[in-house]
Design a protein around this nucleic acid. Structure first.
Length: 187
DNA sequence: TGTTGAAACACTAATAAGATACAGTTTG
DNA sequence: CAAACTGTATCTTATTAGTGTTTCAACA
């Protein structure tokens, strides 16, 4: 297998979810953990947990299900979850074994193809049925490859956002595929 | 008309780049 | 004193989980 000499994807956001397997009284929890929990059921049914100013956010629901958003690595998602579970156990909420369901649902990654791109030409080259490009609405080209389970946003600067991937290798392969397409089309 | 279901919206994180809005400052 | 300019903020696109409410469709 040939050595990769190009830039791989950089993870910028991780979304993960799990379940405590217990029904909860969010009102009581929010009252108990006033300093780290925000809860406004009139506005949204989830209770927001945040450990620090720029730390990832955990949204906890009545059913015991929860979502971690804003982590910049899978490891950070896991450590945030551990902090969350520790706080809950300290307050007498014991998660059931069902919490093994914790899993990353979405990776948002960034990369760069290393050249400025003509997005109108790229849309035609990749195929109009798999691309959306309306620069008056949004400056990025939306690429939904048929052979990869994620979506790529491609910009004129050559920067690329890969979103919807459930693993880093999947994001990397999708980006690599796009990179090869661009290489074939413009050289 | 009542029921049922589906869909869309409320929210959150993060990134890209372009338009637009508005505040504040500098210049003629 | 008004026009010009700079800086900041918010919105556009996509993705994903979750629950509650609302809206709208179809059917009996």
């Amino acid at each position: 297998m040939r050595q990769r000499d190009y830039k791989m994807v950089e993870v910028v956001n991780v979304v993960a979810s799990g379940s405590l397997g217990v029904e909860l009284d969010l009102e009581a929890i929010a009252g108990d953990l006033d300093d780290i929990v925000d809860y406004d059921p009139d506005n949204y049914p989830g209770a927001y947990f945040r450990f620090g100013d720029s730390a990832p956010l955990i949204t906890l629901y009545r059913t015991g299900k929860y979502i971690v958003t804003g982590a910049s690595s899978e490891e950070e998602a896991h450590t945030t979850r551990e902090d969350f579970l520790n706080i809950l156990t300290d307050h007498g909420i014991l998660p059931s074994a069902e919490d093994e369901w914790f899993r990353v649902q979405n990776y948002v990654c960034m990369s760069q193809v290393g050249e400025n791109l003509n997005l109108s030409a790229l849309a035609i080259g990749l195929g109009l049925e798999v691309t959306e490009y309306e620069p008056e609405q949004f400056p990025g080209l939306v690429f939904r490859p048929s052979d990869h389970d994620c979506v790529l946003l491609v910009f004129g600067s050559g920067k690329v956002i890969i979103t919807g991937a459930t693993s880093i290798p999947a994001a990397d392969e999708a980006f690599d595929s796009l990179r090869k397409h661009i290489e074939d089309l413009f050289s």
